[in-house]
Amino acid sequence: MSSLSIRNLHVRIGEKEILRGLNLEVPKGEVHAIMGPNGSGKSTLSKAIAGHPDYTMTCGEVLLDGESVLGLDPDVRARKGLFLAFQYPMEIPGVSNANFLRAAVQARLPEGEELEATEFYARMYEKMDLLEMPRAFTARSVNEGFSGGEKKRNEILQMAMLEPRYAVLDETDSGLDIDALKVVSNGVNTLRGPGMGILLITHYQRLLDYIVPDYVHVMVGGRIVQSGGKGLALELEEKGYDFIKEGLPEEQSVA
């Protein structure tokens, strides 16, 4: 089936269990938001899906269009169409954005096939225009000396170039001023469509004013504890996370 499907996912970092039986289904073409208080395991979820080696899946499944990614290296998952926009994108000194993107696009081509440079640049410039990024940006080292807003734009540029089937956006709104937030949201909205499922992870409702989700999930203590429409986000904004926590049985509350 066409979805990013997470079933009964348990994840540890070292001895500590962070995700404790998480279930979530993001069908292709939809945008789902996960909200939750600090420490609820939101970022752990994104890293675990992407296959970060420090996160151990002890139980459960992550399926991309029905295919398990369990045990696959992060790069294999990425090439299968999974994209993670990082909360804190890494700097790669000396490697230009253009070269990095080229390498990433090239990695998706069949063995022996060479990337057509002219076409690549044309496509990259088109996406950069969308994100209001100046041309000079291509020659700068990946994320090195970038402002918070530039780093997040760069994440969305990479997403636009790599055309994933499923994208997880981890706190993409953090560190953005309102203008940058609009540009980034506009980028995501343009990419949004029937070919891509998007999972937005955010702490604040604000982002959802710009990228309107189809569904909202609330995460507490390593599980999804409530799901609903866009209205749920507004309710959270108004009442805070405590109202959700109060409604939970004792053993489900935050560890």
């Binding site: 992407a50 790069d75 890494m90 990433a104």
Partner: peptide, 8 residues
């Protein structure tokens, strides 16, 4: 990890 997530 960041670079691997991009497919390298």
């Amino acid at each position: 990890f960041y670079m691997q997530q991009r497919g390298l």
